[in-house]
Every structure is written in structure tokens, then in C-alpha cells.
């Protein structure tokens, strides 16, 4: 089916990015494994949709596609939450840097 080709092409592209980022040292080995396994499983799921349905049936969900959607939604929400927390921490750090610079400047101008 054409949709399988499109999705798999995109996932292979995503996998290549993960590999490149890992080689470039921008992501750690844990992150490399997480994203690598995620995209790899997605490719398997697209190639063998019947298998996902049997897993879904085992878990009490009708179709494999539904199971994928449920799992994806939960994972996405969790990742958004993580990104939000990370962003808050980054904001806090920016403020600390800005404060440090501001206070040093006051000290310097007081010495003049």
C-alpha cells in the first residue's frame, strides 16, 4: 500500500537523523536507544499490521491501529510534559544568568 511506503520512508529518514545526532554527540546513548527503538518498532508495525492487531487483541483493544493511536497519545502527552518542565528549568537558568550579569554591573559601576 502506498501509505506504507510513505510512512516507512519518513521513519527511515527519522532513524537516519537519530543516528546522525548520536554520532555528532548531540544526544546521549539512552536517548539514541529510546528514539531508535521507537522508530524501528513503528516500521515493524507498518510492515506487519496484523501483528499489531494480535497484540491489540491480547490487550483488549480491537485493532492494532487503535492501539498505536492510544499509545502514541499517551507518549506524546508525557513528552510534552517533559518538554514543559525542561523549558521552565531553562527559563529559570536564563534568569539566573541575567541576574548575575546585572548584579556584577552594579558592583562595577559602584567602584568607578
Amino acid at each position: 500500500m502506498p501509505v506504507q511506503i510513505i510512512l516507512i520512508s519518513f521513519l527511515i529518514f527519522a532513524l537516519s537523523r537519530v543516528l546522525l545526532r548520536f554520532r555528532g554527540g548531540q544526544i546521549k546513548s539512552g536517548e539514541f536507544i529510546f528514539w531508535g527503538v521507537l522508530f524501528f518498532l513503528a516500521i515493524i508495525g507498518i510492515l506487519f499490521p496484523e501483528e499489531t492487531t494480535s497484540i491489540a487483541n491480547f490487550l483488549g483493544v480491537g485493532r492494532g491501529v487503535d492501539l498505536v493511536v492510544y499509545v502514541s497519545l499517551v507518549t506524546l502527552f508525557y513528552l510534552v510534559f517533559r518538554v514543559y518542565v525542561l523549558l521552565q528549568d531553562t527559563q529559570k537558568e536564563i534568569s539566573e544568568i541575567v541576574r548575575e550579569v546585572a548584579l556584577r554591573q552594579v558592583k562595577n559601576s559602584a567602584k568607578k
Binding site: I94, S95, V98, R99, A102, V106
Partner: peptide, 18 residues
């Protein structure tokens, strides 16, 4: 007067903290 300048806007809470 003494002036502490935030190089970028960080909000009122951050200014009070400074």
C-alpha cells in the same frame, strides 16, 4: 541611583528577585 539592568526582559518576579 544604583541600576541593575537585565539584558533581556525576565518579568516582574525576576526583577524583584534581583
Amino acid at each position: 541611583v544604583a541600576v541593575a539592568t537585565h539584558v533581556v526582559n525576565r518579568g516582574l518576579g525576576a526583577a524583584i528577585s534581583t
